[in-house]
Amino acid sequence: MSDTPALLPTLERIAERLDARPHLLRMGALFSETVLMEIDDDCYYLTFHRGRIEKIAHGRNRKTPWRFAIRTDADALERFWQVQPAPGFHDLFGLVKLGRASIDGDILSLVKNLRFFKELLAIPREEERA
């Protein structure tokens, strides 16, 4: 685990921007779970309550239960967040297909909230576009 939570500012900005997107909050209204994002060896636990990110905890903690985990690397995320990503880097499942990400745990929970999650993760890309 690294000492510097490199992605924390980006994830916090996603949480902040999410609050200003009523359509996403509407879509995520039934989503109250903790999601693990593991970037390289860095762990971030995102706790959602009715579509809002209420808490982001940094650092691996085996006592924190999570519903599903997305594991990827910082370079893949940087490419994912480009305004016009290269083929495969344009979508979460594209990263998985490229072997640059994996999804574990209750994948159906992700699929039931897939549009919410994809648009949430793409917020930095949309900000670049704007």
Binding site: Q84, P87, H90, F93, G94, V111, K112, L114, R115, K118
Partner: peptide, 18 residues
Amino acid sequence: AHGGEMGAALVSANIAPH
């Protein structure tokens, strides 16, 4: 769950960002 909404969210992976 709504199969259509999940299906649309899945196949959005197949649309180019352009």
